[in-house]
Design a protein around this nucleic acid. Structure first.
Lengths: 98, 98
DNA sequence: ATCGTTTATCGTAAATAAACGATGAATTTT
DNA sequence: AAAATTCATCGTTTATTTACGATAAACGAT
């Protein structure tokens, strides 16, 4: 059966993951439970604004969440969507028939 | 351990998959073993040149192969890279630690 | 040799992405 | 109240993506 709707969603997740820096960020969050923007600024050789922009992309796709903890912002994986993404990718690669 | 190299590769696969049309194309090839460009032009409401361009993207990422069968071109999944992509995504979503 | 079929490539326009520095908002510290 | 810290957003530049129509290339059929 056609699952175009799923592909829309899957494409959004794939797009968020379509950059090495964002994959590193996700991996970092997967490994560390949470982190602040500044932590990532220290890790990547990128301007603070660029790191922030990548985080925004990940948040837009729903893969991460940001919680304001003044004066910082604490990011963590969005476990629910992370699970959905995992399942969509799994299903996509599993399928071998319509 | 850091696997930056893998993230480069994974990002390339994710980028190729970051468009609903290309996901549909991959699904189509996954379901039909092979198809010609024209088959896809009939399926999608897109210009022939656009379909060809998407196929080029998928080929560039290594996810599909094209074989010239005059006067057509026959596309199929690149099984080897398809497997690699599948494994990279699996590993990525599985990891929960450094 | 010409014609029709099939597909890739070219050229172009509009949209989106990636990177940066500078600025601004929120909140804690002094 | 002022200063410092942390982070998002703005404005900009450059590059890439997406889509199209038009053209070119390759080849079989006539």
């Amino acid at each position: 059966m056609k699952k175009f709707k799923d592909y829309e969603k899957l494409a959004i997740f794939a797009k968020a993951m379509a950059h090495p820096v964002r994959l590193e960020m996700l991996a970092h969050l997967s490994a560390h439970d949470y982190c602040y923007t500044g932590d990532l600024v220290d890790v990547f050789p990128l301007a603070q604004s660029t790191v922030s922009q990548h985080l925004k992309e990940l948040k837009k796709a729903g893969l991460i969440q940001g919680k304001i903890c003044p004066p910082k912002v604490r990011y963590c994986l969005d476990e629910e969507n992370w699970k959905i993404a995992k399942e969509l990718f799994e299903a996509f690669f599993k399928q071998k028939n319509v």
